[in-house]
């Protein structure tokens, strides 16, 4: 019920705080949630990936995350510095379905917030909720270490409830993953992101934006 109530407020919030204000609000929610979840440390990628599979990491709050272990991210020396991860279902799908039955339609402000975010922050949002959980992932990675190295999270691709997609070409290029491969992942997953060691010397580039 709380989730549906919040959605019905998006329009209100956008009118009162403006679209930019709504983005700031959602970003702060993502940031606060990440801070409250706490820190984690893993001995290596296998232990992180097992924790993820068993629902023990902060990332598990988003639902069932699959570690695509065939898609390792490697650095210039060929060492594994991260992996690609995918969510089968968007975290907001259950909420959106409930809205369809109880309220009827998603407020127009939803799209407006996503568009503003795409234009001013990063071009990776398919709906206003992407703002919250993309910020959450990016902040939560700062609280996790693998082999004593802090992590960073990069948004790679996502598919919205209506089938619209966003593919972060620049980030894919930097981690050396073919965009067409990621596009095919969207047939089975709603959201694809990379978790890698912060500052890793990636092929061709020093760091992912």
């Amino acid at each position: 019920m709380l989730d549906v109530a919040l959605v019905s407020l998006i329009k209100n919030m956008s009118e009162k705080a403006g679209i930019e204000g709504a983005i700031q609000y959602w970003s702060r929610v993502g940031e606060n949630l990440a801070k409250r979840i706490g820190e984690e440390a893993y001995m290596g990628w296998p232990s992180f990936n097992v924790a993820l599979k068993e629902g023990r990491t902060a990332y598990s709050i988003e639902g069932d995350v699959t570690a695509l272990t065939d898609l390792a991210i490697t650095d210039v020396d060929g060492d594994v510095v991260g992996y690609i991860y995918a969510l089968e279902e968007c975290v907001f799908t259950p909420t959106i379905e409930r809205i369809r039955y109880s309220v009827g339609e998603i407020p127009e402000a939803d799209k407006a917030v996503a568009e503003e975010y795409n234009n001013t922050v990063q071009n990776t949002a398919v709906c206003n909720f992407c703002v919250i959980h993309q910020k959450y992932r990016s902040e939560v990675s700062k609280n996790i270490t693998v082999e004593n190295q802090p992590l960073e999270c990069v948004q790679l691709a996502n598919r919205g409830f209506r089938g619209d997609t966003k593919i972060a070409m620049r980030s894919l290029e930097k981690i050396g993953i073919n965009p067409e491969y990621v596009r095919s992942l969207l047939r089975n997953y709603a959201c694809v992101y990379g978790i890698l060691m912060k500052g890793a010397r990636l092929r061709g580039k020093d760091e992912v934006d």
């Binding site: 929610v29 949630l33 709050i61 639902g63 907001f92 259950p94 919250i132």
Partner: peptide, 11 residues
């Protein structure tokens, strides 16, 4: 449901 949405809403 998704825990993320519930918890984020409380925060």
């Amino acid at each position: 449901h998704n825990p993320f949405v519930d918890v984020a809403a409380y925060l």
